[in-house]
Amino acid sequence: MSGHTPEEIHQEVRRYLWVFGLLIIGTIVTVAASYLDLPSFAWTVALALLIASVKGFFVAGYFMHLMDEKKMVYGILGSTVFFVIGLMFLTIWAMSDPPTNTIYP
């Protein structure tokens, strides 16, 4: 991260407190949203994951300083994201190809 002068650190601290407030609000909204009467369960899942992703963005971006990191870190995380997406796609593909003939006489 940048910001190493005392002024910049104080600025960072103010930002941390803002993010803290947003995370608290995000948690309350997550719980409140789960009680909403949405058209389908898919909407409930999408909304819950959207709020969780926003909260995750704030934690990773500001607390873990990913908003202002070196290319090396982005490279490591970029390759990780690639493989995680691949993993999730494997799950989706597996759903259309369920195991059959698993019971033998």
Binding site: T27, T30, V31, S34, T44, V45, A48, L49, I51, A52, K55, G56, V59, A60, F63, M64
Partner: peptide
């Protein structure tokens, strides 16, 4: 150590709605 701790927090942010609310 803080980076690890934030990761632990990050995982819980997803675990909580998935296991408790959905």
């Amino acid at each position: 150590s803080g980076l690890f701790w934030h990761f632990v927090d990050l995982v819980w942010i997803f675990l909580f709605p998935v296991l408790y609310l959905l």
